[in-house]
Amino acid sequence: MATANDSVHGRIERARLELTPTQVALGLALAAIIGFTLLFFQEPLMHDSLHNFRHGAGITCH
């Protein structure tokens, strides 16, 4: 809902009330793991499995 107090700062305050630090940490960790795996992970099994996807997405980091 858009309120009078609708600012980036207000949203951050609101998120701090709604979320526990554990939830924030879990969410960030999950996003970081998926992102890192898709973009940069070099372990041969993973790298070769994602080969076509990475080429297709223009991720040349392998």
Partner: peptide, 14 residues
Amino acid sequence: ATTKAVSVLGGVFW
């Protein structure tokens, strides 16, 4: 075949 399948999944997760 694995590369193809995992790459499709990679696209979905991306």
